[in-house]
Design a protein around this nucleic acid. Structure first.
Lengths: 214, 214
DNA sequence: AAGACGTACGTACGGTGTACGTCCCCCGGG
DNA sequence: CCCGGGGGACGTACACCGTACGTACGTCTT
């Protein structure tokens, strides 16, 4: 008496659940099967292999982005909204987000956001080449920010939790040492918005210069 | 007759080699041991576990960044140089870079770049809080860019290689379809510098406003 | 000489992804 | 009605993984 007949969607959902609860390392075919109350190999009737399953997870997370694009609004507002919408997934599915970000995915799930962004930029007045450049700039910033937020990146926010602040040598790293409290704490939302505003302003002046010059 | 007596450094080097040749998935203790002509468990005399070994890899790659900081130069030039220096590692060790970027590392190897950047920003006139903000902004951008370059991210540069351009539906995604050639090709260096200049200009403006206002 | 110690090593255990063969249930054609 | 076949669920098996443990051997100290 199977409550539901097992499908790729159900498997992906279980995977997301598992990742969110116990982290990506906990994901194994056996574990997912157990969570679904199902034999391991049954999964392979709906999913060709583990890699494809993880692609599915990335795709599912990505497709949950909620765009509420208002074509009437000023393009700066629209860009801001789109960037924030994308960042939201990091809050709803923090650990799965890592998969989205660190996984090369060849599906079309990511195409919708690209289309929205490009059309916004084109309507703002950027030519094709600049629109693509700006898009890439924003993507780089957003992805980089998400990596920090999700806590995986911090190649360089190492003085965190303020727990081991005293471990950095003030002689070798005077600035790091002095700014340790600031480096340790971080209001992600505020930080993200700060950078976002800076970026939007920057590309606005870029647009102005092109406009008045050409 | 061991040519050299096996050490953490030698093991890490072998790991980097292996990653660069066959990708991170190929890394296993057995494989590394085999490459070194050594028993698997001998590795554990110099490395507590695999995770620590990968940390070592990240640290080693990170420490190869070549900073040629010129304290005489204008701060914008110094920032530019530091950002470019960091990007270089993506070229020398593309696949290992992923580890650096996707791995939470608690060592002090990443502290030197932070120190340099902070002191540059402070000398430019930013107060502590702003210096940290700017640093985070740059890190986000650089990490995001590296992810695209290394080819792992492209959450959204899916139309690549221009091979399957025709697979996107022009009706659903007119912009993507129209700009496909631009989306497919990418001069990473030019793209990176473009964003970098924009960022530097933006924070220069920010600095001006703060300076004239306060 | 004798003991202590560090390094290299082999074996073994529990876990992983998945190829393959088997069973059963359901469904369409006679 | 039967009955044959196809698809999904499943168990077993294999190769590989990280690593805990016990052991053998060289070197250094006393």
């Amino acid at each position: 008496m199977p409550s539901e007949p097992l499908s790729r969607a159900r498997i992906v959902a279980a995977a997301i659940d598992l990742i969110e609860r116990e982290g990506a390392d906990a994901v194994s075919m056996r574990r997912i099967a157990a969570d679904l109350g199902v034999g391991v190999m049954s999964l392979y009737n709906h999913v060709p292999n583990k890699a494809s399953l993880l692609d599915g997870v990335a795709e599912a997370v990505l497709s949950k982005i909620q765009f509420t694009d208002d074509p009437e609004a000023h393009w700066t507002d629209r860009v801001r909204m789109q960037a924030r919408a994308f960042r939201q997934i990091a809050h709803h599915h923090p650990r799965s987000t890592m998969l989205v970000v660190s996984r090369q995915l060849h599906s079309n799930a990511g195409l919708l956001p690209v289309e929205r962004a490009l059309s916004t930029l084109r309507e703002a007045g950027f030519d094709g080449a600049d629109a693509v450049r700006m898009l890439r700039l924003f993507i780089a910033y957003i992805i980089g920010s998400l990596l920090r937020e999700v806590g995986v990146t911090p190649t360089f926010a190492p003085v965190q939790g303020a727990t081991k602040v005293e471990k950095v040598d003030p002689e070798l790293f005077p600035e790091v040492s002095a700014l340790a409290p600031l480096l340790g704490a971080c209001d992600h939302e505020e930080e993200f918005d700060f950078g976002l505003e800076l970026l939007i302003q920057a590309i606005a002046v870029h647009l102005d210069r092109k406009g008045t010059r050409g």
